[in-house]
Design a protein around this nucleic acid. Structure first.
Lengths: 206, 206
DNA sequence: TGTCAAAGTTAGTCCGTCTAACATATATAA
DNA sequence: TTATATATGTTAGACGGACTAACTTTGACA
């Protein structure tokens, strides 16, 4: 009995959870070298299966990549929630914390970040990405409203949230594409995030 | 004599300017369908040459794509200069005008914009892109300093310029990847740019 | 006018995506 | 327990794109 369970997956005809293994392999490979350099064949090599095997689980390469993107969005959501739990009850720090997660995720997994940032190929994929993305963006709305002592997400909240998103989105790309060095070789990212947060959240009725 | 010049390029063995034609074809194709879907073969079909022909002019596909990117940066530079000439002598409008060009370029040619935004593969390409990109970014520095009535580009100027860049960069991506609809279906881009410009350029010594 | 270099062409390799036909394991039903 | 259906693997191969090698055509210039 013990020996049965010891048999390596790759030595058996059926893997048991090839789908999950392929997504994991794809995630690692994409994180390493980006989507452009990623090939299904390579994921197969990693998972020790034939190049035809994935097509029992994914319609095509795009669908496989989509799975990686959705997984990324979910992990990002967890990280944002974690950051919020660790943040103080009130103040700008909560908003900055979310932004920091966004940028850090991009830096840690540029390939996956690009996937998430990019547009999905077909309608189903688009819908799935939107739904998952919206969950993350809701956190921003909530925190912006909280900071402004508002009970509902009104136009002003949405506008500021969009400014914040625009910012961290742009910063993420500039960082992972090595463009920041051109502008400011040793940028203090945390300080920059705070400065931007202050400007966006500042009361401008004055 | 007249007949000689009338002979279509594609009917002759040597094109005369295949390189330029290929870059133009690549530019159009990439603008239409993005780099991912672009193939050298297709550019060859458009230019009516064999699939081996390009390799007399480009080391590989990457080099061909790089040519399109550099061309894009140069055109962007022209557009920015044009916009500045049409803008008033002073005030925030000059800065907004540059930003508007940045975003419009992304919207008009998303594929080329992504190329410019992305990181180059090898060192030579990186250097070429940096040099060209720096020319465009200098315009921002100059205008920010001008707005602040400064004669030199100091730390404050650089910081604000980076904020502005980060913003239009992020906005461009959000727009071309259809993410803005998620946040604000009918965003007034010009108003948004102005609002951001004001926040970034506002005197904060108060 | 003859020769050389530039810039095309054809043919073919290699690699990746994806499909078709077949094989094997697992789950369910007799 | 055995039979069968289904899920999930495999191999073989079509197809397309990037790129190379060997060859051909053309234009430039001695």
């Amino acid at each position: 009995m013990a020996q049965m369970t010891e048999i390596r997956r790759k030595e058996r005809y059926h893997h048991g959870d090839l789908r999950a293994q392929l997504v994991e392999a794809a995630r690692r490979l994409i994180a390493e070298k980006g989507v452009d350099q990623f090939s299904v064949s390579e994921a197969c090599r990693v998972a020790n299966v034939s190049t035809a095997a994935p097509y029992n689980h994914f319609k095509n390469k795009e669908e496989m990549v989509l799975a990686v993107a959705l997984d990324g969005l979910e992990r990002e959501n967890w990280m944002m929630r974690d950051a919020l739990e660790a943040a103080p009850e009130n103040g700008l720090d909560r908003i900055i914390a979310i932004g920091r997660v966004y940028v850090s995720f991009a830096q840690d997994e540029p390939g996956v970040f690009r996937l998430i940032a990019g547009s999905a190929p077909d309608q189903d994929a688009r819908a799935a990405m939107m739904q998952s993305g919206e969950r993350n963006y809701d956190l921003v709305h909530t925190e912006v409203a909280r900071y402004l002592n508002k009970t509902e997400i009104d136009e002003d909240v949405r506008r500021r949230a969009l400014m914040l998103w625009t910012f961290v989105h742009g910063l993420s790309f500039l960082l992972i594409d090595n463009k920041v060095g051109l502008a400011d070789p040793d940028l203090d990212i945390d300080g920059f995030l705070r400065a931007v947060g202050e400007r966006v959240m500042r009361d401008d009725t004055v």
